[in-house]
Design a protein around this nucleic acid. Structure first.
Length: 428
RNA sequence: GGAGACGUGCUAGAGUGGUUGAAUAGGCCGCACUCGAAAUGCGGUAUACCGGAAACGGUAUCGGAGGUUCGAAUCCUCCCGUCUCCGCCA
């Protein structure tokens, strides 16, 4: 959510963001609702002031009559105000965050900008298989039985792939909790930021609707799993319950940045992607993910995001997976984002780059609604929030499977993962 | 799941219908005393929104949402959370 004062004072900027992000919203309607809301607010407050003034102490019968009338009048104004507030709130939540200045303007993914590429694409002397073919032939992925038991887009992961998933988790956690390593990554990326280690978190996978709304992640609802009995939603990312963890809290300036690495299963309905990527584990209803989240001072938030991207790059460099870094354009980015950077890994089986990581700079968009602040010398202000994939455990294994496949149809284990897999060198 | 108790400011803790934004104590900040510190004394110490150039004024907030009342921290209903006992369970 943006600050209504900011919206009033920067109408053109907001209009531009709405247009560039392809959001269907009439800003004039919002501004009119704001006018009306403020008018009714003063009116109702004036009535309350009168009521408060006159209600002190016991009342004479005449006073009681008049106060009763006043009460009725107040009720009418308040009812109208409540209606207007509801409209206003709905419109407010539709206003997207303002894209950063370096965000490319574009209508859809065609407008995304490749910022850089890393790694040498391997030339196979055979036709590389797609991950689902490898998954089938090595008995690592069973979609058929999962479909019978749970439905389409669910899978049983098996054998070496399971071990690899846990190895990736272990590896990821070991990097993000290693101060020396983080220092090296900061130094290499040339960023001027404070080193605080990532605190490991296992967050809840259920979230309350109002909190989900505050995270600006409830919509689109079709994408979310809902448990009606308890009116709870399943999270689509550890971000959802990690970002809201400090709701209604105020940080001390010297404690920032606060950084977390969370592990959770992510649940996604994948509505609207019928028939797309149906094979294997690229697009499934349930997958595990290691996720980064941080709360920092406003002036440091872009650097913080760059730090997250540097970490993501470090992971793929260590895993030796070719990738490209992509600046997501206005039309393709999420509504709450101010700046979105994706990492796309080279998938030899598909012969193309596919998204494996995303890094979202939310500025104060989430923090304002969640009430997460920092107390500073100049006063209290909202923190900036960043979230980013550390390692997604559906797509990182895919990248490994496809890049590390051999002519024999086996999969080599990347060196950095071997010590977490009992030293085995390949899945066969 | 059953029975009961409770939820007040940064913290502890009073307050059970009428100048209560809220006693008191601690903490914190400022000042005084002191060579300095401790101790002591005095003063200050919430947030959000609306209006205003500002000074300031108004409103709301005692877990949350509704309700009763001229008036609610205080009464009623529902929800959330905490604690104790029992049951169940990994």
């Amino acid at each position: 959510m943006l600050d209504i004062k900011f919206i009033r004072n920067n109408q053109e900027k907001v209009r531009e963001a709405i247009k560039n992000k392809n959001v269907d919203l009439d800003l004039d309607k919002l501004l009119a609702a704001d006018e009306r809301r403020r008018h009714l607010l003063s009116e109702s407050e004036a009535l309350k002031a009168e009521q408060n003034k006159r209600s002190k102490g016991p009342q004479s019968p005449v006073d009681l009559e008049e106060l009763k009338a006043l009460k009725e009048k107040k009720k009418l104004v308040e009812n109208e105000l409540a209606c207007v507030e509801e409209d206003f709130g709905k419109l407010m939540s539709q206003v997207p965050n303002i894209p950063s200045e370096d965000t490319p303007v574009g209508p859809d993914e065609s407008g995304n900008k490749i910022l850089g590429q890393w790694g040498k694409i391997k030339n196979f002397d055979f036709k590389p298989k797609e991950h689902w073919e490898l998954g089938e032939s090595l008995d690592l992925i069973d979609s058929e039985r999962a479909a019978k038991v749970s439905g389409a887009r669910f899978t049983y992961l098996k054998r070496g792939l399971v071990l690899m998933e846990f190895a990736i988790i272990q590896y990821g956690l070991s990097v993000l909790t290693d101060e020396k390593l983080l220092k090296k990554i900061i130094k290499k990326s040339g960023l001027d930021i404070r080193l605080t280690p990532f605190i490991p978190i296992l967050p809840p996978v259920f979230i309350k609707p109002d909190v989900f709304q505050k995270m600006a992640r409830l919509e689109p609802k079709e994408e979310r799993y809902h448990i009606p009995t308890d009116d709870l939603y399943l999270i689509g990312s550890a971000e959802h319950t990690m970002g809201s963890m400090h709701m209604d809290e105020t940080f001390k300036e010297e404690d920032l940045p606060v950084r977390y690495v969370g592990f959770s299963t992510a649940f996604r309905r994948e509505a609207g992607s019928y028939g797309k990527d149906m094979k294997g584990i690229l697009r499934v209803h349930q997958f595990d993910k290691l996720e980064m989240e941080s709360f920092c001072l406003p002036e440091n938030s872009i650097k913080e995001q760059d730090f997250f991207v540097a970490i993501q790059e470090y992971f793929f460099q260590e895993l030796n997976i070719p990738y490209q870094v992509v600046a997501i354009c206005t039309g393709d980015m999420g509504g709450p984002d101010a700046r979105q950077i994706d990492i796309e890994a080279w998938m030899p089986g598909q012969n193309r780059y596919r998204e494996t990581h995303t890094a979202d700079l939310m500025t104060d968009y989430q923090a304002r609604r969640l009430g997460i602040k920092v107390k500073r010398a100049g006063g209290t202000e909202f923190v900036h929030m960043n979230d980013a994939t550390a390692l997604a455990l559906s797509r990182t294994p895919i990248a490994i499977m496809e890049n590390y496949q051999t002519k024999k149809g086996t999969i080599e284990i990347p060196k950095v993962l071997r010590k977490y897999m009992g030293g085995i060198k390949e899945i066969k």
